[in-house]
Write a protein that binds this DNA or RNA. Structure first.
Lengths: 243, 243
DNA sequence: CGCCGCAAATTGATATACTAGTATGGTCAA
DNA sequence: TTGACCATACTAGTATATCAATTTGCGGCG
């Protein structure tokens, strides 16, 4: 990279009309598609921690060029899902043991602040949204559809951030939740766990509906405290998945 | 993108030896350099909100190809510093007014959890690190070097996250702090503000040194509460910088 | 004045080639 | 046998040229 004194040069020169359009809908690019495919594969452990990846091979498998694959891998590396070693290789990142408790701390801190605000300003319509999600979860739990259940679980927490008016917090929560969820995938499915989750969601919903700020906080903390994976146990069963 | 049944195909086939090496030092790539240059220019308002950017022009100005510039812009867009409109253009993102209070909430929640843990487990050596930073800040405040002062300010907060054992939280804090800092750059420099910051840092340091968890929390909240920019006032003075 | 359509501009994606670090595996010497 | 060393293959990083897809802006037409 050549030296250049002022990188902000040409500030006024071009000064052409800038896109006045607002947000718009970002269309789904090839890079997005590749990203989500890899994201799902990693989260579902179809690509286990430590697995070697290659831009070239992935590009061939997906029938695309290296460019979008590369952009997808870069996004994954920012999210801590892959580790890129320049000029050497790329691997699905092993789960850093220390990251799990840290992720739990972040999640508790942010979900606490969010649910408290939600309990303060929620409208009746907002509560109805939560009810709709809970209803779907009940049905999915009865069917035993764990995958769809998990999607609705995410929807529940996302809805709370939207009610609170903190949509950006959900973005942060998603990234930290990934590490937790990845570890939880390694645990054995507990019988009746989905029913417990639904019950906890109902408690949170009720506290929000009654505008009980402190109660909503407690219900959320209880909910989050129940899902901490036993890292030590996992580490002994899957030693090569952690580092 | 062609359809493909199993994106995780070839899981066992290649199974070649994966980079056994640990972390290593990621060397600084061209894309990294471009990213940091643009990052600094945007944060310093040398590239003001709303300014149009072009991959091609930036590439020419920096003397590099479009590839690394493109990667840098993608990273910036994830951080909310630029908005990319496909097939239309890229602009330095205007500051979303709603993002400021949200960023403050996130920062308070995470810094609270962090400083509390730091106050619990800090060693004498850790406190010395904080003292060293504070000493440098005193000197820089006396010199009136606001730029270097700000760097040490970041170092102070980063050090607390390291003491708490939550390095990942600092990564999150950096991204949310950017929006706040960008808005603060628009405020007039307040006389003696740096001295106030130093005093507040000292209060935080003292609480940590005495292992006063609750006191550390209060000191941090007081510190963070003092730096909330007056969004409304800014919006009237720089209407085209917000949206 | 308003609508339509075309040309220009810009990002998205592809293909290819080359560069520069990195790991591998084998050779050779202690 | 063990250790260091070196040639080689391999991979991500960058460069470049080109085309595709889409939006924007402008000019002309009704």
């Amino acid at each position: 990279m050549r030296e250049r004194s002022a990188s902000a040069a040409g500030l006024s020169e071009g000064a052409r009309t800038l896109p006045t359009r607002l947000p718009k809908v970002r269309r789904v690019t090839t890079a997005d598609a590749v990203f989500h495919r890899l994201y799902d594969d990693i989260l579902a452990l179809r690509m286990p921690p430590g697995m070697a990846l290659q831009e070239k091979k992935i590009a061939e498998q997906f029938g695309v060029s290296r460019t979008p694959v590369r952009e997808a891998l870069l996004r994954l590396s920012e999210g801590g899902l892959v580790d890129i070693y320049p000029q050497a290789g790329t691997v699905v990142s092993r789960i850093p043991v220390s990251a799990i408790p840290e992720a739990v701390v972040v999640r508790k801190a942010l979900e606490a602040a969010t649910v408290e605000r939600a309990a303060r300003i929620a409208t009746d319509h907002d509560v109805e949204r939560l009810d709709a999600i809970i209803a779907r979860q009940k049905a999915l739990a009865a069917l035993g559809d764990t995958s769809s259940f998990h999607e609705e679980d995410e929807a529940f927490h996302e809805a709370i951030t939207q009610i609170a008016g903190y949509p950006g917090i959900w973005t942060i929560l998603k990234t930290v939740k990934v590490q937790i969820d990845r570890a939880r995938r390694l645990t054995l499915p507990v019988l009746g766990r989905m029913d417990h989750v639904v019950q906890e969601h109902i408690l949170i919903r009720n506290a929000i509906a009654k505008r009980e700020v402190e109660g909503a906080h407690r219900a959320m903390m209880h909910h989050l405290g129940a899902v901490i994976p036993d890292v030590e146990e996992l580490r002994t069963r899957h030693p090569d998945y952690f580092c």
